[in-house]
C-alpha cells in the first residue's frame, strides 16, 4: 500500500511500512539524505524538518502520521540553497563538522517564520539542537544576521 507524501512541494509515493519514522523514509526510501540521523529519540534535532511549517523531529514520527501534510526538508528550504540562513551560515563559517547543521538551519528557519526578530532567549528555546563541535555562538550570530537580511 503506497503512501502519498507532499515533500518540498512535490507529491511522492513510498512503499515504506506506515510505522516507519519519516526520517528513514526520507533517507532510505526517497534518497534525501540532508536530514540526519543523530539519536533516534527526538533529542538531538539533527533530523528536524518542517511539517506544516512547524519544526518537527522526524526520527520518531511515523510516516503515516504526516500523509497529506506539507513537509519541507533542507533540500527544499530554498530553491538554490540560498535561504538567508544558508547564506549567513556560509558567510559566517558556522559549521565545523557540519552533521547537525541541517537540523539547526531547519529549526532556525521555522523560528524566523514565526518570529522575524528573535531575541537570544527566543533562539535558545527554539533552536535547542545538539552540536558536539560547539558551533553555538556562530549559530546564534548567523540567525541574527539572517533575521536582519530578511527584514531589509
Amino acid at each position: 500500500m503506497a503512501l502519498e507524501l507532499k515533500i518540498n512541494g512535490t507529491t511522492l509515493t513510498t512503499d515504506a511500512d506506515p510505522s516507519t519514522p519519516l526520517l528513514w523514509v526520507l533517507r532510505d526510501h526517497l534518497g534525501m539524505t540532508g536530514t540526519k540521523f543523530g539519536c533516534g529519540i527526538a533529542q538531538c534535532g539533527a533530523c528536524t524538518v518542517h511539517v506544516n511549517g512547524m519544526a518537527t523531529r522526524s526520527c520518531q514520527l511515523p510516516v503515516a502520521a504526516v500523509a497529506g501534510a506539507d513537509i519541507t526538508t533542507i533540500e527544499g528550504l530554498a530553491p538554490n540553497a540560498d535561504h538567508p540562513l544558508q547564506t549567513a551560515w556560509v558567510e559566517m563559517n558556522v559549521a565545523q563538522c557540519g552533521y547537525c547543521q541541517s537540523g539547526m538551519i531547519m529549526a532556525a528557519a521555522a523560528l524566523l517564520k514565526q518570529n522575524p526578530k528573535p531575541t537570544d532567549q527566543d533562539i535558545n528555546v527554539a533552536v535547542n539542537n545538539v552540536c558536539r563541535c560547539g558551533t553555538y555562538p556562530r549559530v546564534k550570530a548567523a540567525i541574527h544576521k539572517a533575521a536582519g537580511t530578511m527584514q531589509s
Binding site: 544558508q86 556560509v90 541541517s102
Partner: peptide, 12 residues
C-alpha cells in the same frame, strides 16, 4: 569560510 561550508548549508 571552510570550503565545505556551502555543501553543509545546503544539506548536500
Amino acid at each position: 569560510a571552510k570550503l565545505s561550508a556551502p555543501a553543509i548549508a545546503s544539506g548536500s
